[in-house]
Nucleic acid binder design. Structure first.
Ligand code: SF4
Ligand code: SF4
Lengths: 137, 137
DNA sequence: ATTAATTTCTACCTTATTGTAGTATATACA
DNA sequence: TGTATATACTACAATAAGGTAGAAATTAAT
């Protein structure tokens, strides 16, 4: 039960960008500071840009920053881009959703857990995560 | 953020076995009833047996049942066999665990979610899941 | 003993995720 | 205009997860 590595990377880089809103940050810089494979990160940044979360500036002195229209991005928006949100509406046993009236024994346990997960990714935003970076990346 | 398919299969089959404690159930039967690939399930059953969760009876009329010494198996024990428990003590950003004194902005959100996850898999057992199978597998 | 039904074991195949390499294109600026 | 520094694009490689095939070994019953 974990996020894909790519999702971890995306959260990592988005938190970092949210803490450096004014600067254009290059892939090379982010790669070194955040310890994410250079080329792989490049593709991920492109994907996040296509999804509208980032603004890009090509060429010399270029790089990425949080898109000006998206100043308060929630975790679910990042996860949606990298691995999708299907798993948050999915049965733990891999069955198509059953009725709440006739649930299997696991249902109530799973639903409650899934609810917590969902609540977190929909309520935590990059705004909540700004200004406190203490960690050595 | 989801369990591996193999973990879903394992939970599925363990819940079913817990609801049929007295019978030896063959892989072929389980495969048909639970809709899990035959050969893949065979290997999974063998793995669960090696891990001590199941008892096996080879040959004609053979099959598997919950191991008599393990009458109350918790979800974490199944997950441990299939995908391990590392992710429940792991940073969401993929960094080695930092100190609680000097956390990054995500830390408190992640820790609380992880705690809920962990509580569920350590507190829900097959005993909790018996006697209520309504679902068509 | 023979047969049928079962697990065990080994090898391989497919798919998705993660990572690498190289070239083309865009921009800043001297 | 030329050069340096950046992203964009395309192709491919490595790894892990999920799945398939078949022969060998085990057991029950005839
Ligand atoms: S009732 Fe059971 S099988 Fe159906 S969606 Fe809920 S957990 Fe899954
Ligand atoms: S402080 Fe941040 S980087 Fe460190 S373990 Fe907690 S969530 Fe991960």
């Amino acid at each position: 039960m974990r996020f894909q590595k790519t999702t971890e990377y995306a959260i990592r880089v988005m938190v970092f960008l949210a803490n450096n809103q004014n600067e254009w940050l290059s892939v090379n810089h982010l790669h070194q500071v955040l310890n994410i494979p250079y080329k792989y990160l490049g593709r991920l940044m492109h994907t996040l840009t296509k999804a509208g979360l980032l603004e890009v500036n090509m060429g010399k002195h270029g790089g990425y920053k949080i898109h000006p229209d998206k100043q308060n991005i929630f975790l679910y928006q990042i996860i949606d881009v990298t691995e999708g949100l299907e798993s948050y509406d999915r049965c733990i046993l891999g069955f198509p959703e059953c009725s709440d009236e006739n649930p299997c024994p696991l249902h109530k346990y799973w639903i409650s857990l899934q609810k917590s997960l969902k609540e977190m990714i929909y309520s935590v935003s990059l705004g909540d995560l700004k200004g406190l970076i203490n960690v050595k990346y």
